[in-house]
């Protein structure tokens, strides 16, 4: 983290891409993009683009992972080899395994698992283009894809990343800020429930900075949450018209 950035990350209160510290990149959403999947979504946070597909509820393979009274959520977060500057080896890394696990734990908390005993809900997340904040973009995409698959949930889940540059707390890190910033704090929120579903922290933070980060994340989540509802409405309307 002590690495020197090739260009200053914060000048006169503006970030490398001209954003203010608490300004989120434009968020794009498209729901129902993959015909084969039960639910799917393509989400962009600026130049970070993630494709999510949900298959299920379906019969688990292998069978032994079945739980008698509820569904099992499985998540695979993966980065495409061409999504990064240097080619990323497609074999799953320890980082990807960890992210898959925390994303799974975020999603399974909001899904009504007891409605689908003995089945699995499989969520596949492919990062197609990476420019920071890939895991939180993935969560937003996953939540939309689950909703698109018609799986009942307690709330939609919004992912927002928070970071730190020269003691300034910033929202929605891009690649440079992720690589050269002083810390990163990915968060996923069930907005209406006021629940934090994913939270990790990297770097050295004062407790007050973490608190501020959470506040900024909730603020950013409000907007994204509204966009998600609109995107889903658009999708449902299209189905109705068909």
């Amino acid at each position: 983290m002590a690495k020197q950035s090739p260009i200053p990350l914060l000048t006169d209160g503006k970030r490398v891409d001209g954003r203010l510290p608490e300004e989120h990149r434009p968020v794009t959403m498209q729901v129902g993009v993959l015909p084969n999947a039960n639910g799917s979504a393509l989400v962009g946070y600026g130049n970070t683009i993630v494709l999510a597909a949900v298959y299920g509820p379906r019969e688990p393979i292998p069978r032994y992972i079945t739980v008698p009274d509820k569904a099992v959520v499985r998540v695979r977060y993966h980065m495409a080899p061409f999504s990064t500057d240097d080619r990323k080896n497609p074999a799953p890394t320890r980082r990807e395994i960890e992210i898959s696990k925390v994303v799974k734990e975020a999603l399974e908390t909001v899904v009504f698992l007891e409605q689908y005993p003995k089945s699995t809900i499989d969520v596949f997340l492919e990062v197609l283009q990476a420019d920071g904040s890939t895991r939180v973009t993935s969560i937003t995409a996953a939540s939309l894809a689950l909703a698109d698959a018609g799986i009942p949930m307690k709330d939609l889940v919004v992912g927002v990343s928070v970071g730190k540059v020269n003691d300034t707390v910033i929202v929605d890190l891009n690649k440079l800020e992720d690589n050269y910033g002083d810390g990163d704090l990915p968060i996923a929120i069930a907005y209406r429930k006021n629940w934090v579903l994913l939270m990790q922290l990297d770097g050295v933070w004062k407790p007050s900075e973490v608190k501020r980060g959470l506040e900024l994340a909730f603020k950013a989540a409000e907007n994204i949450y509204r966009n998600m509802r609109e995107a889903l409405k658009g999708r449902y309307m299209a189905v109705v018209q068909q």
């Binding site: 006021n194 922290l201 050295v204 959470l214």
Partner: peptide
């Protein structure tokens, strides 16, 4: 300082997170 955080299963409210951080110190 806080040098790492990790949320596992379940959910937590911002208030709970705040109290856990202070307790931990």
């Amino acid at each position: 300082n806080i040098v790492a955080l990790q949320k596992g299963e379940g959910y937590f409210t911002p208030e709970e997170i705040d109290s856990m951080m202070n307790n931990t110190l």
